[in-house]
């Protein structure tokens, strides 16, 4: 498990450092780019845990989609000329309290949980068994997912269109 640990700590360090840049950077573009490394690191965590499909979804949807949308958002809202895009640190003390409470809660959960000790055994890809489950037992869920996506699609388009008319 030597190599496994090394990879884990490498990605953990990557997530921590880039996470600090995300919240600490004055330039919001740097924050968005650091978020890239955070999300890639989380994808690596999923893969290390044996959840390969989840890892690929994380890469495709978050890194490939939502992060691009975030960057678009920054580039859309920025003025052509003039003010630098900055982010300020507001509400330092309330957020410190929130962090402390949340950390205490997480530590409590981590120490109190009876963790199952499983040797990480990398079986064949889980994607096919997932597909079999989706068709066999969860085909209704699969179709409802399509409806949810449809609603999201129409909602997003409607919101974006209304925004456009105001301009």
């Amino acid at each position: 498990m030597e190599l496994y640990d090394i990879i884990f700590y490498f990605f953990a360090a990557m997530i921590l450092v880039s996470g600090f840049v995300v919240v600490g950077s004055k330039n919001i573009v740097y924050s968005a780019y650091s978020l890239l490394f955070v999300l890639v690191g989380i994808a690596a965590f999923y893969i290390l845990l044996g959840a390969d499909f989840l890892g690929v979804v994380q890469l495709m949807v978050y890194v490939g989609g939502i992060l691009i949308l975030l960057l678009f958002g920054i580039m859309l809202t920025n003025k052509v000329k003039g003010v630098e895009i900055k982010s300020d640190s507001n509400f330092v003390i309330p957020s410190l309290i929130t962090i402390a409470v949340f950390t205490a809660f997480l530590l409590f959960v981590i120490t109190e949980t009876n963790w199952l000790e499983i040797t990480p055994e990398f079986v064949q890809t889980t994607v096919k068994s997932l597909g079999i489950e989706l068709i066999q037992n969860y085909s209704l869920v699969f179709e409802i997912l399509a409806v949810v996506l449809l609603i999201a699609l129409i909602g997003a388009a409607t919101l974006a269109r209304n925004d456009n008319k105001e301009n």
Binding site: V61, G131, F142, A152, A160, N167
Partner: peptide, 27 residues
């Protein structure tokens, strides 16, 4: 601003493609 709308639509179809992968392997 049009790029943003296209990116929004792209994300929805991105999720769709992700969900179709397991189906395509198993159907």
């Amino acid at each position: 601003i049009r790029f943003y709308v296209v990116a929004l639509i792209f994300i929805i179809f991105d999720v769709e493609v992700v969900l179709l992968f397991p189906w395509a392997l198993a159907y």
